[in-house]
Amino acid sequence: MATVKFKYKGEEKEVDISKIKKVWRVGKMISFTWDEGGGKTGRGAVSEKDAPKELLQMLEKQ
């Protein structure tokens, strides 16, 4: 499965696309949330040019 790689608060992170729940556009950035388990929700953002095609497809479906 595809993953999204991004930096959050200076830390490199990687999230499996299948865990992503919500995707939206903020200017030229793609923001998203995912389920971290245990009732926690993670947040992240990646530039439109660095976003994997699967993430962009999720954005178009909404």
Rank of each mutant, 00 (worst) to 15 (best):
M1A: 08
M1I: 13
M1K: 10
A2W: 02
A2V: 13
A2F: 04
A2Y: 04
T3C: 04
V4M: 02
V4Q: 00
V4E: 00
V4F: 03
V4P: 01
V4H: 00
K5W: 02
K5H: 03
K5R: 15
K5Q: 03
K5V: 04
F6P: 01
F6K: 00
F6L: 04
K7F: 06
K7E: 04
Y8P: 01
Y8V: 05
Y8E: 04
Y8K: 02
Y8W: 13
Y8Q: 03
K9N: 09
K9W: 05
K9F: 09
G10F: 02
G10Q: 02
G10A: 02
G10P: 00
G10I: 01
G10R: 01
G10Y: 02
E11M: 11
E11Y: 06
E12P: 06
E12V: 14
E12K: 05
E12L: 13
E12A: 06
K13Q: 06
K13P: 00
K13M: 09
K13A: 03
E14G: 01
E14I: 06
E14H: 05
E14Q: 04
V15Y: 01
V15S: 01
V15W: 00
V15Q: 02
D16T: 07
D16Y: 09
D16R: 05
D16S: 11
D16C: 08
D16N: 10
D16F: 12
D16Q: 13
D16I: 10
I17A: 03
I17P: 02
I17M: 06
I17T: 04
I17E: 02
S18Y: 10
S18F: 15
S18E: 06
S18L: 14
K19T: 09
K19H: 12
K19C: 14
K19V: 11
I20L: 10
I20Q: 00
I20K: 00
I20W: 01
I20S: 00
K21Y: 15
K21V: 14
K21M: 15
K22S: 15
K22I: 11
K22A: 15
K22Q: 15
K22E: 13
K22V: 15
K22F: 15
K22C: 15
V23N: 01
V23L: 08
V23T: 13
W24Y: 15
R25Q: 06
R25Y: 08
R25E: 04
V26S: 12
V26T: 06
V26Q: 06
V26R: 12
V26F: 07
G27E: 08
K28T: 07
K28C: 15
K28Y: 15
K28R: 07
K28N: 09
K28D: 10
M29I: 08
M29R: 13
M29P: 02
M29T: 05
I30R: 00
I30L: 12
I30E: 00
S31E: 09
S31I: 07
S31V: 10
S31Y: 06
S31R: 10
S31M: 07
S31K: 08
F32T: 01
T33N: 06
W34D: 00
D35M: 11
D35T: 09
D35L: 11
D35W: 08
E36N: 07
E36M: 15
E36F: 13
G38P: 07
G38S: 10
G39M: 13
G39S: 14
G39E: 14
K40H: 12
K40P: 10
K40F: 14
T41I: 13
T41P: 07
T41H: 13
T41S: 09
G42T: 05
G42H: 07
R43T: 15
R43W: 06
G44P: 00
G44L: 05
G44Y: 12
G44I: 07
G44S: 08
G44M: 05
A45L: 07
A45P: 01
A45T: 13
A45G: 13
V46R: 01
V46H: 02
V46Y: 01
V46E: 01
S47Y: 10
S47C: 14
S47P: 13
S47I: 14
E48Y: 10
E48M: 05
E48W: 05
K49C: 15
K49F: 09
K49D: 12
K49Y: 12
K49W: 08
K49A: 13
K49T: 09
D50E: 09
D50M: 09
D50S: 11
D50A: 08
D50L: 09
A51G: 11
A51D: 02
A51R: 01
A51W: 04
A51T: 12
P52A: 05
P52F: 02
P52W: 01
P52C: 05
P52S: 03
P52I: 07
K53V: 12
K53H: 05
K53E: 12
E54T: 07
E54G: 05
L55K: 00
L55W: 03
L55E: 00
L56R: 09
Q57N: 09
Q57Y: 14
Q57K: 10
Q57L: 06
M58L: 12
M58W: 05
M58G: 04
M58T: 04
M58S: 06
L59V: 10
L59G: 03
L59D: 03
L59S: 10
L59F: 05
E60V: 12
E60M: 11
E60F: 07
K61R: 04
K61A: 13
K61M: 12
Q62G: 09
Q62C: 15
Q62R: 03
Q62V: 06
Q62H: 12
Q62A: 15
